[in-house]
């Protein structure tokens, strides 16, 4: 398959079963190389389990995985050196300094060069803004600092793909912005970035592609522009003589009218001509104070797909 070469991650019918429950159910992801791929889903939707399978930490119950063209888990050792990852939060030895933690994990990796180790560690620390705290023991780190150290760990070597599971967890707004900028600059270098989050707003501005997962299934996937287009365009109207207005809209073939306290909202086809409608309204002497077409935000689209509410789905 020629397509396989352009994909950084490809899964087909990937399933993970824990007992009777399917944590991940037949998902097929296609992450193009060079993309910033947002992997979105509420807590407990199976995102981290999927990432664990992609990284060979857990075995798939069914389905196939390809990571950078290598079948997983068969060629795990060939793929992993090219992958930087942050999985379910950072984890370090609390009794060692941040810098020594990085040195230790890099020495454990027999694919990495010992000669350049110190220099690589220091530049990774600098990149995430931890240089000043690098000699402190990790147990004295705040969650945000640990998160940064986790990112530094992912950046220890030149990577082809970064898999980042909730990278902004625990960061203050300033830190979140920095991580976003970091991701942007890494993406600009051509590194594929696969970033999971339960908050669309965190990643919406970053991503070129998006997959939405809920209850173990992928409910939407694709280029972010395509996904935006899939959501229904709406007409928003503010005018007087509401009852007559509703009648008029119905006569124009617009149903599903919803009345809000100060305006009317109607779903319309994407190519709807608002100007012509406006002309008609003016002709009928309506006092129109607002008429516009609105594209629902991705946020709304996301909530529509995953369902609202705080309850964990299962």
């Amino acid at each position: 398959m020629t397509q396989g070469q352009e994909l950084a991650i490809r899964t087909s019918s990937l399933t993970k079963q824990f007992g009777s429950q399917k944590a991940v159910s037949e998902i097929s992801l296609s992450v193009p190389r060079g993309s910033v791929f947002g992997f979105l889903g509420p807590n407990g939707s199976g995102k981290t389990t999927t990432i664990r399978m992609i990284l060979g930490l857990a075995d798939a119950s069914e389905g196939e995985i390809e990571l950078l063209g290598h079948p997983i888990p068969k060629q795990l050792e060939q793929a992993l050196p090219k992958v930087g990852a942050l999985v379910e939060g950072p984890a370090f030895y609390p009794y060692m300094s941040g810098r020594n933690n990085l040195i230790r994990i890099d020495s454990a990796d027999r694919f990495s060069e010992a000669k350049t180790r110190k220099q690589r560690v220091d530049s990774a620390l600098e990149r995430v803004g931890l240089t000043n705290a690098s000699k402190k023991k990790v147990h004295a780190y705040s969650l945000g600092m640990k998160q940064r150290l986790g990112l530094a760990n992912a950046l220890l070597k030149p990577r082809e793909i970064l898999i980042l599971d909730e990278p902004t967890n625990g960061l203050d707004p300033q830190g979140t912005r920095e991580v976003r900028n970091l991701i942007r600059s890494l993406a600009a270098e051509g590194i594929t970035i696969f970033v999971s989050s339960h908050l669309l707003s965190e990643i919406e501005q970053l991503c070129s592609h998006l997959a939405v997962m809920t209850a173990g299934k992928i409910v939407a996937q694709g280029n972010i522009q395509e996904l935006r287009n899939e959501s229904q365009t709406r007409l928003v109207l503010k005018a007087d003589r509401i009852d007559e207005l509703v009648e008029l809209l119905k006569s124009q073939g617009l149903s599903k009218i919803s009345l809000k306290p100060d305006r009317i909202v109607v779903p319309v086809p994407t190519n709807f001509d608002a100007a012509t409608l406006n002309q008609l309204l003016v002709k009928k002497k309506f006092m129109v104070s607002e008429i516009r077409l609105e594209q629902p935000s991705l946020e709304e689209y996301f909530v529509n797909l995953t369902g609202e509410g705080f309850e964990v789905v299962r």
Binding site: R52, L57, V87, Y93, I105
Partner: peptide, 16 residues
């Protein structure tokens, strides 16, 4: 500690 997953994806082979 959770460091096991980071060691394995470093990667360090499980046997090793």
């Amino acid at each position: 500690l959770g460091t096991l997953r980071y060691l394995l994806i470093a990667p360090v082979g499980r046997l090793r």
